[in-house]
Design a protein around this nucleic acid. Structure first.
Lengths: 207, 207
DNA sequence: TAAAATACCATACATTTGTATGGTAAAATT
DNA sequence: AATTTTACCATACAAATGTATGGTATTTTA
């Protein structure tokens, strides 16, 4: 079991991931320092050392921007918000309806987007199938009816998004799955991004 | 119209894209130099300047690794192949079949591949729908069961390919459509290429 | 309560990095 | 034939970058 990160360390790790996803390239120490308001890079340097010591990143010494996030699920594990999980009681959700998504090597896409491989057939009526790769843009506000990627507890789901008065509904197009309803304040919930495209390789068979 | 890149410039641009896709981070000048066996960075520097001048990349000066590839679509515009195919049948006959689309870099594919927008639902059981964009590789021999693009008289079709003794069968997955049977010598028939991938933009509604 | 970890600061320094400048040689263009 | 483009080389240098070292103050842990 890996050691727990401190709050600040988590935030920095978060930033590392964010930058890689949105800019496609890890930040330099200076950039991190600027973002967090540190007056020098040494502070960042020490945080990074601490994070590396705990096994969450790996640094290639001397090389610029060579910060590798080594915890793949990292993208989906507690972010600062999620870290404060579950003061209240978790909602009754339907675990079977939750699709898990593998985050492949983060690829920089034209519009800061990244890729996810879809597993499960809950969106098959939206023409998205198991094995398909969805291109996700994290910088857009979801509109009703759009297909979004969301984090819910420890799982990521790809579903159609509907915002209602006091709750958010994540709907599968496949009638076999029931909608997931989330109260707005539910802590471990986060919209990761909007699916802007789907890609499927014809070489690999859908799983 | 953008200027043509030289062979070496193309290779470097290729490398930039490759690195971005595989490593997730653009290389430094030194890394490029090493990869191509250059003894100093100045050579790379000059190539990059040339490539930037021609509009294929954009550099953020002073920042490390800040090389932005600006022309993903460049790789996906219709290729000469179609022109050859059209020797007998002018390209203008099926203008709707050919279209340029902005594709994410992930869908970067074999040289000479091109894109076609699918119309009609004859392949919907193969998970290809009207409005989808298929990526076609003209340099592969079609194998039985593969989805191919063929030109038949003055129409381009996307169908599953089956080679038989004396004829070729083009099958729709949609049972509403009957297979097209072509005698081998049929003059106005030509396999354009093999569908190696499918892409769908979620922004544009399927036509 | 003492020790360790955390969270910063400042300064210093060797590399890395991007870039500017100047040069040679061959190929392509005019 | 003259000029431009291309494709390298070498050197030089400022800025960016990573890192080492030492320091202070607070919080956490033993």
């Amino acid at each position: 079991m890996k050691k727990e990160l401190t709050e600040i360390q988590k935030k920095i790790l978060d930033y590392l991931i964010d930058q890689k996803v949105s800019k496609g390239i890890p930040p330099t120490l200076a950039e991190i320092a600027k973002h967090f308001g540190y007056k020098n890079r040494a502070t960042v340097q020490q945080h990074l050392q601490a994070i590396e010591k705990k096994g969450y990143i790996k640094k290639n010494p001397k090389l610029s921007r060579a910060i590798e996030v080594t915890v793949e699920e990292k993208f989906f594990i507690p972010r600062p918000i999620l870290g404060e999980v579950a003061a209240g009681n978790p909602l009754t959700i339907y675990p079977d309806a939750i699709d898990t998504v593998e985050l492949p090597t983060i690829v920089r896409m034209p519009k800061d987007s990244f890729l996810l491989r879809v597993k499960g057939d809950s969106l098959k009526d939206a023409y998205i199938f198991s094995g398909d790769i969805v291109i996700v843009n994290p910088n857009l506000e979801p509109k009703n009816g759009q297909i979004v990627v969301a984090i819910l507890d420890d799982a990521a789901v790809v579903k159609r998004f509907y915002k209602k008065k006091n709750e958010i509904e994540l709907v599968s197009e496949n009638p076999e799955y029931k909608p997931i309803v989330i109260e707005k304040k539910y802590p471990s919930f986060k919209i990761v991004g909007i699916v802007i495209g789907v890609y499927r390789s014809m070489n690999k068979k859908a799983v």
